[in-house]
Design a binder for these strands. Structure first.
Lengths: 110, 110
DNA sequence: CGGTATCCTCGGTGATACTG
DNA sequence: CAGTATCACCGAGGATACCG
């Protein structure tokens, strides 16, 4: 039987995983989906175990990958709002599926 | 506006990511989906950059998580076949979606 | 053929303190 | 409020050699 082998240096599956992998990206995308718009401090509270450095770093990566939009209000005190971009929104069906699968597996373990 | 915050210690999204995250798991699941059954050496060729240690470690984790089935033939020379379990198959729609999304993004970059 | 056994590297993550 | 700046750690992943 002839096997299908895709040996591209950058497999699309790998590519996608790199863009949404990492310790917090899945949760951030999910929270932004649930809330539409969140401020820096709100994300920080939602991801209670995250350090400011990691939060900033992670949302910047998501912004560079065009999954998250960052809106800065030049006020005092400062205000920054995060939301999903169109491309980020395209990931939601996928994250929803993954979440349901995860819930099912957790249920199985009990 | 009241925000939706899910602060469970083990969010299902996180849970799922941990089970299919890692450098090679996505590709292994995808290859097994495409080929139905693959031997150790075939997986090794498919994932040309993987070391035997990492391959063994990764498929063992997938086996422990009941995503992959490992069938040993007690022959000489030895023969081991890997395939997706039912639970592993449930991830395929998700990986398919992710793959298409990845292809689209790669296309955008060009 | 299908793995193990060691040893080692490196970068993703964390802790803490400070700032416009 | 929304970040930066440093320094430190540790474990996922890699290199290499060997085994039943």
């Amino acid at each position: 039987m002839k096997k299908f082998i895709s040996n591209e240096p950058s497999c699309p599956v790998d590519y996608a995983f790199k863009r949404i992998g990492g310790k917090y990206k899945g949760r951030i995308l999910w929270y932004l989906h649930m809330n539409s718009v969140m401020r820096y401090g709100e994300l920080r509270k939602a991801l209670s175990d995250i350090t400011p450095k990691m939060l900033t770093q992670t949302v910047r990566e998501l912004e560079d990958d065009a999954l998250v939009h960052r809106k800065v209000y030049h006020e005092v005190p400062p205000k920054v709002e995060y939301s999903l971009t169109e491309t980020g929104n395209e990931l939601i069906p996928f994250i929803t599926y993954l979440k349901q699968w995860g819930e099912k597996q957790i249920e199985k373990e009990r």
